[in-house]
Design a binder for these strands. Structure first.
Lengths: 210, 210
DNA sequence: AATAATATGTAACCTATGTTACTGCCTAAG
DNA sequence: CTTAGGCAGTAACATAGGTTACATATTATT
């Protein structure tokens, strides 16, 4: 796993920082569906993704839930950073979308390295930049697009993440991610099928052309 | 204006940093309605707010527009920072909500100060933290609340910003900020009036109790 | 094999929100 | 004063999306 980390982050960090991370970081492998953090919890450390993907969700006070974005190899969670530094509770939920390898960096090191390593500083800022933009695009999607377009975007993004034209999701699961209802998603998926964009099956969807 | 800046940022920055900012910063006063930056433009510098308020808007490819949040005294625009450092175009539009005083910090200094001043570093991170959370709450509002609740929140927030129970807006303007239509806003405002929450007038709304 | 649990398809209906159209009113410009 | 343009009120209607209900198909459990 350490070797995998090295190849993933070689382009981001200098040798000495890589070694420091290996020294103090906690390497971890989590299975698909594992909840890494929930809303209201405090954080143990800052996760750097080595492989796999993590989905970041936002939850309503009542029942609603909404997929914000995915984290992938080379990403880290800006929310985590802000939470760590302010020592506040998590505003989001993080769930492994597939089997995923991460390394957890202790909170204290974060700040220290920002002063010490230019590459770390850039990494942290770039990460903020990416997350902010992803959040903006999620917001765009909700504010300006109708559900059919959002569903299309969801399918495209999911395909990109799993790197496969087979999307293993029930309609209910998709409905949760889009904060909609099962019936609505079924309806729209059927429309997409009639248009020749997907093939629908029990428990999975085959993407044809979008 | 320099004195006003000093008092506003004394709690954030150490003396030497304050002096550096005064030395290299460009002090500016902009009038209500002035557009500081538009989508697709490149940035001249990083603005620190001394007084007043700036509203940050997101725009659709077609016609839609959406208020994201306000910047106030002591705030800065994280979007600006990320844009500056990545040298990318602005993703948002910024318009002075009232007469507003700012100081523009040159881009090059930003990175330099991050290594040099701990207080600047904290300020930048705190700013990211705040903006990310504000964006999250805006997203919540759109994803989970109906228009009547969003309108209420809008009125509350606006009252907080202008520090006055008189809100000088036409229904059309509110509709733009909420990415809705004038008729819908008129309808909902009328409902709020019937419930005794506001008094409606031409060109302004008086807030009673919310 | 029989039964239970889960996933999907579909119809019928409701409501919030958007759209169009028209009204009267206020106010600024002439 | 007169008039034109901007603002607000309201009705009538269209539609997307949420809800309820039920049928059917697939898979898991006994």
């Amino acid at each position: 796993m350490i070797e995998e980390f090295k190849t993933s982050y070689r382009q981001h960090f200098e040798e000495t920082l890589i070694n420091e991370i290996i020294e103090v970081g906690i390497f971890k492998e989590v299975n698909e569906g594992h909840k890494l953090i929930d809303i209201g919890e405090y954080l143990r450390g800052m996760p750097l993704l080595i492989s796999g993907a993590i989905k970041i969700l936002r939850e309503d006070s009542d029942d609603g839930e909404l997929l914000l974005y995915y984290l992938e190899r080379g990403d880290t969670c800006s929310m985590t950073m802000t939470c760590c530094m302010g020592n506040t509770k998590s505003e989001i939920r993080a769930i492994a979308e597939m089997d995923t390898k991460i390394v957890l960096v202790p909170i204290q090191k974060m700040e220290l390295w920002i002063a010490k390593y230019k590459s770390w500083r850039n990494f942290v800022f770039e990460s903020y930049h990416n997350r902010l933009n992803e959040l903006l695009h999620t917001l765009d999607s909700i504010a300006f697009n109708a559900m059919d377009q959002r569903l299309l975007d969801y399918i495209k993004e999911k395909r990109r993440i799993v790197k496969n034209d087979i999307i293993k999701n029930t309609h209910q699961e998709i409905a949760y991610d889009l904060n909609s209802s099962r019936v609505v998603i079924s309806r729209l998926l059927k429309k997409l099928e009639r248009l020749g964009h997907v093939d629908l099956h029990r428990n999975y969807i085959k993407v044809l052309n979008l």
